[in-house]
């Protein structure tokens, strides 16, 4: 009898089980409990939410293992944690701590400006950010089992998230059309996307990524979450949007509700009522280029 751990099927399988769900950034066990009570499918354990990383500056690194362990002990839902881009030792530590998913994240300061982590060499699955299809396929080639469009974390401005999910969706549709009309042009499509040909072919024929696609970066309201879902996301990450708002428990539950029935305006309207103040946020247009996190990763 053969038993296999850490196979692509098992890694992608957990992401499948997160479909239609909301993954929430939390910085304390108490916040993790609030997220679980509100119906989060997973929590992202970190020391500072992106809005604070942005405000405080400095180098952002993997969280203290004590914090991650305390959050794992507190909740029964999956716990994710972030490693810096290319920092495979932080990833080794997170795997040792038995987190359920590692986010190789541009929200932290990159550790390697050339190479991402070789994610095939781990048993624990990885989620990675992408702003376009080529970037998503490069991460999948490295072993990512889940993709999230990046958006612009810590802003509460959903415009970059919209741009990235639309870009990925449009590029998939273009490949799909090419597979039917001119399959001999897929070679050049792979060159232009800077992505492996076999993955380009797979996407072209399936009309979808081979892994689950969530969105992240700027989602702050139930309607934002539903917008991402209507644009084709399988689920959403909400970072600063919940615990930087006036009533985190109510807002978290409302975003879960709107994500589950994202195509029903009556449900979204009901979910949007009486939530108090949303996070104040900053407009991405006001961010000077060096402070745009989405541009990290290659």
């Amino acid at each position: 009898m053969t038993t296999v751990i850490g196979s692509p099927l098992v890694k992608r399988g957990l992401a499948d089980m997160l479909n239609g769900g909301v993954i929430m950034d939390v910085v304390t066990p108490e916040q993790a409990r609030i997220a679980e009570d509100a119906g989060a499918v997973a929590v992202m354990a970190l020391e500072r939410v992106p809005a604070d990383i942005r405000a405080q500056g400095g180098v952002a690194r993997m969280s203290d293992p004590d914090l991650i362990a305390a959050i794992i002990d507190t909740v029964s839902i999956p716990v994710m944690a972030k490693a810096r881009i290319g920092h495979f030792v932080e990833a080794q530590v997170l795997e040792h701590l038995k987190v359920d998913y590692i986010d190789e994240s541009e929200v932290l300061s990159p550790a390697d400006y050339t190479h991402h982590i070789d994610k095939h060499s781990f048993t624990v699955p990885f989620v990675c950010g992408a702003t376009n299809l080529g970037e998503a396929l490069r991460r999948i080639a490295e072993g990512a089992a889940m993709i999230r469009s990046k958006g612009e974390a810590g802003t509460g401005d959903v415009s970059e998230a919209t741009k990235h999910i639309r870009t990925i969706r449009r590029q998939i549709a273009e490949l799909s059309a090419l597979a039917k009309s001119a399959p001999d042009e897929l070679y050049v499509a792979a060159k232009e996307l800077q992505a492996p040909l076999d993955l380009v072919r797979e996407v072209a024929h399936a009309g979808a990524l081979p892994v689950v696609l969530f969105t992240a970066g700027g989602v702050a309201t139930p309607a934002d979450a539903a917008l991402m879902m209507q644009l084709g996301a399988d689920g959403v990450f909400v970072g600063s949007g919940i615990f930087k708002s006036g009533d985190p428990a109510a807002r978290a539950a409302a975003i879960v509700k709107a994500t589950a029935r994202f195509d029903e305006p009556a449900v979204i309207a009901e979910a949007s009522r009486g939530l108090g103040e949303a996070m104040v946020g900053i407009s991405v247009a006001d961010l000077p280029a060096p402070h745009r996190l989405a541009e990290r990763g290659w």
Partner: peptide
């Protein structure tokens, strides 16, 4: 019992 077979690193394909 939920999650009785461990965390994700213990998830497996098997016969």
């Amino acid at each position: 019992r939920r999650n009785a077979l461990g965390s994700q690193v213990d998830s497996a394909e098997t016969e």
